[in-house]
Design a protein around this nucleic acid. Structure first.
Length: 431
RNA sequence: GUGGGUGUAGCUCAGUUGGUUAGAGCGUCGGACUGUGGCUCCGAAGGUCGCGGGUUCGAGUCCCGUCAUCCACCCCA
């Protein structure tokens, strides 16, 4: 058989897996302070959830979805992002009935069929929050600040982050602007790449995203939505900026920031980092999607959120030299000696664990010396030497690996002795 | 989907103009007067040289194919 993980997927072994849990713990703790509650939606949905939500003309829907027919003949798609599912769930369970506000967060794998490269996987992890039912600009500022604070909490230097901000307008002003850009593209199509020429019809705004130098040059002269926002959108946008400035969160207005999902209205934002991501640069982003719920047939419900990528966040942390805290694999190592009754050694280790101490012992019949090496490698602060001599008189030797001090303690008092030595921080699980 | 790079021990890599039993460092395991760690020293295990085919007296080393991987384009987290 082919003992290899599929293309674009990766096994997360101890080092990475621990970082993963650190990212999740940090998120849970921070998001809870803002009142967000966890939600777990299915990893797959009816395909329509994504085609309608994300937009038929987006790259995600056009060429990146893992879509298949299940045995019941339904078209199923592995989620390529989180917002569509959460909004679908909120609608299904009426979480925003009568204008109720819902604050949700999720974390888990997303799937997109793309060629993998640095910072891009076919299965990748995102954490995101969604704030539903909130139309005020303070909501935008809150969501953006959660994202910013999260990266700060992880230790990514604020100076290395760049927050980009833009407004996509709404139904009152975007259609007219969109028409203007389409006209502009048709007019100047000679100077644009083939792809952008085609964009005029389906998705003209995406031409702003093109990295082709010629296109960048031409699009630099294209009309900007910033200058065409309706009064309500302009007021909203400037209020968001005011709130952010009030928090001291630095942002850069980028009138050409266009995000790849069709559902955005008004505020869109992205946090970029310069080092570590290869040719990618965004570690998180999001925006407002006031029409999404209606798109699914629900009541008009404003909403917004962000998503951030685990892989990219980790790359950014590594580039910034941030270390991920890793707990010691053992605080105490219980060593057995030739002639020690296995059952007794085993019981001592168990007693320590029951008392809340991380304890490890040998299961391979290795020499005492090897056990000490192992204890050292695991980061154990103490080694309990359970030799026949000690056990005979109901005692055990407790060695402090730092000071090399050894004391004899009663066998049934090991847990409390260690607990005291560790500063009494363990909790007793079994009275 | 397109382009380029790379595929040699668990990991990072070296392998000269193709020539006999494929190497190093790290890691792992064992040992240094036999119940004790982190340093040092000694030793050991571990490799279908991605896979298939071809050229050759002979290929890890050249050619073709294939797969995988990395990076980039597209686009995004």
């Amino acid at each position: 058989m082919n003992a290899r993980a599929p293309k674009g997927t990766a096994d997360m072994l101890s080092g990475v897996a621990q970082a993963w849990e650190h990212l999740q713990r940090t998120a849970q703790e921070l998001f809870a302070r803002y009142g967000y509650e966890p939600v777990y939606t299915p990893l797959f949905e009816h395909t329509e959830v994504f085609t309608r939500g994300i937009g038929e003309a987006t790259d995600i829907v056009l060429k990146e979805m893992y879509t298949f027919e299940d045995k019941g003949g339904r078209s199923i798609t592995l989620r390529p992002e989180g917002t569509a599912s959460v909004v679908r769930a909120a609608l299904e369970h009426n979480l925003t009935a009568n204008g109720t506000q819902a604050k949700l967060y999720y974390a888990g794998p997303m799937f997109r069929y793309e060629r993998p490269q640095k910072g891009r996987m076919r299965q990748f992890w995102q954490i995101g929050i969604e704030l539903l039912g909130a139309a005020e600009p303070t909501a935008d500022a809150e969501v953006i600040s959660v994202l910013w604070r999260y990266f700060e909490a992880l230790g990514i230097p604020p100076a290395s982050m760049r927050l980009l901000l833009n407004s996509m307008g709404d139904d009152a002003c975007r259609p007219a602007y969109r028409g203007k850009v389409a006209a502009f593209i048709r007019d100047r199509s000679g100077g644009l790449c083939e792809e952008c020429g085609r964009r005029a019809d389906a998705n003209p705004l995406r031409a702003f995203d093109c990295k082709n130098p010629a296109c960048v040059g031409v699009m630099a002269e294209a009309p900007l939505l910033r200058d065409e926002l309706c009064g309500a959108c302009a007021a909203h946008h400037s209020a968001v900026k005011e709130r952010l400035a009030g928090l001291g969160i630095p942002f850069v207005e980028d009138p050409r920031l266009v995000r790849g999902l069709d559902y955005y209205t008004r505020t869109v934002f992205e946090i970029q980092v310069e080092a570590g991501l290869g040719s990618q640069n965004a570690i998180g982003g999001g925006g407002r999607y006031d029409r999404l719920m209606q798109e699914y047939g629900g009541p008009a419900t404003p909403g917004l959120g962000f998503a951030l990528g685990f892989e990219r966040t980790l790359l950014a942390m590594q580039a910034a030299g941030v270390a991920v805290p890793a707990p010691p694999r053992a605080e105490v190592y219980v060593a057995r000696v030739e002639g020690s009754p296995d059952g007794t050694v085993f019981a001592i280790a168990q007693a320590l664990r029951d008392a809340g101490v991380a304890a490890e012992m040998d299961h391979q019949g290795r020499s005492l010396k090897a056990q000490f090496k192992q204890a050292d490698r695991l980061g154990a602060r103490f080694v309990v030497i359970a030799g026949p001599g000690e056990l005979e008189v109901g005692e055990v030797t407790l060695r402090d690996m730092g000071t090399k001090e050894e004391t004899r303690v009663p066998m049934d008092g090991v847990a409390s002795a260690v607990d005291t030595a560790l500063g009494g921080r363990s909790r007793t699980l079994h009275a």
